[in-house]
Each structure stands twice: as structure tokens, then as C-alpha cells.
Amino acid sequence: MTTINALAGERALPQARSFSGGTLAFARREFRDAVASRWFLLYTLAFTVLAVAVSFMSLSSVGTHGFAGFGRTTAGLLNLVMLIVPLMALTAGAGCIAGERERGTLLYLLAQPVSRTQVLLGKYVGLAAALVCSLCVGFGVSACVLAWRTGSVGFGAYAMLVCFTALLAMAMLSIGVLISVLSRRSSVATGVALFVWLTLVFLSDLGLMAGTLIFQLRVQEVFGLAILNPLQAFKMGVIVNMNASLDVLGPVGAYASQAFGDGLAFMLAATMLVWALVPLLAAVVLFARRGSA
């Protein structure tokens, strides 16, 4: 106790840490917490096992003949990614603010010399890094298996798949964080996140299918509506990068390839980037409105 007097001597007034420094401190803590958490390990394990299983299954049928092409192998991996990655990122994002708020830790954090924007961005960066890590483990193991069993996918295309998946994870995380900022309780946030997942993965596509059947939508209409869904943008982006053309997706894909040509991949990546940035920006603005800088 005696040291307090010494500590409390005359010195310069304490300063807040720089914006990026504080943000990074939060990012690192969030990353550490995420990597050590159960959900993270579980998701990583599930993703890895499923990815390897899909690679194995597809290889056992044609692997020995080494035909290249866009078949159900990639489709299977794609389906898996489209199911699991959004679920993972949305729930992780949904928990990040609402959970702290519910535990009462948020106010204590905010009483530190940090801004709300720093807290939010730090958490986002940390979680995004953790998600990318998880994906790298899954894809890495799967790539090793493909290599061992003489894979039929070129590594360049595979790397693009990983990049697009990371982009997808960030878009979904961003939506999750927005949900988290808007929800008072973490159970509500998780519920909303699950609903959004269901909507993006199934409901919107099914709705658009029904719309296409009922209203006989034209190709450009179908394409325009589909691209609003980041999952569809992801799928098309991956296929464009593997196939150079979207014509595997029928008339709509052919239209897209023809209308946008080489710009299509950039356009799809940009769509996903918008999905990653806009909800995050909205979350930052909404979160910051509740307190001072």
C-alpha cells in the first residue's frame, strides 16, 4: 500500500493511446478470446472435417482419372462454405457486443480511455482474424488431402476460393456485429442472427425462385435481384474465378458474363465488399450515437 504515494507523485498527465493502438489492443483481446473459445474450436473442427470429407468423397469418384472441371466437388465445397461460414460469422458477430452488454462488461470497457468506435472496430478486426484463421485451417487441411490424393483443383483457383470465403466471412461478420449493436440481449441477437442466416441461405433464394417461376422474370431482373444476396455474389464470384465464365449458371449466368465480361469478378467482389463495409459502418454509427467519442 505504501507504494501508492510514490505512484501518485508529480508526473505528466496520462494520455489516451493512439486510435489504432487502442483498436489493436481490443482486436488482440477479441482474437485471443475467440481462438480460445469453444464455439471457435467446434466450428473449426466441423468445417475442417466436412471440407476434408467433401474432398475425399469427390476424389474417390473421379480423382484417379484426374478430370478437371467444375463438378460437384467444388459445388460440394461451395455448398458447405455457404452453409457454415455465414452461420459461424453471423453468430460470432451477434455475440460480440450484446454479450458484453449483458455481462455488464461493456460499460466498464467504455469507461476506459477508448472510444466506442475503437471498441467496435477492434472487436470486428479480432473476430475477422479469428475467422480467417479458422478458414485457413479448414482449407489448409483440405488442400493437403487434395494434394495427397492428387487433386484436380488448381491451387490458384483454390486460393481464390479461400479469398472469396474470407470476404464472405467478413461480410457476414459485419452483419452480425450490426445485429449485436441493435440487440439488447445476446439471446435476441443470436436469434436474429439465425433468422438472417436462414433468410440469406434459404429463404431469399427460394423466394427468388418462386418469383422467377411466377412472374417469369427476365434474366437481368433475376441477376439483379440475386446479386443483392451476398451468398449468391460469393457463389458467382467463385465460379467466375474457376471457370472464367458464369455460363454454368444457365441463361442468367451467360447474360452476366456477356454483359459485364471481365469486370464481373470485380463487380462481385465489390458487392461483397459493400456487404462487409456498409453494415459495419452502420454499426459504428449506431453504436457511437449512444455515447461520446
Binding site: Q112, P113, G291, S292, A293
Partner: peptide
């Protein structure tokens, strides 16, 4: 309000 970080420091 405007310089919360510096104030809380």
C-alpha cells in the same frame, strides 16, 4: 463528449 478518449485518460 467530443474528446471522450482524452478525457477518460
Amino acid at each position: 463528449r467530443s474528446r471522450g478518449r482524452q478525457a477518460r485518460a
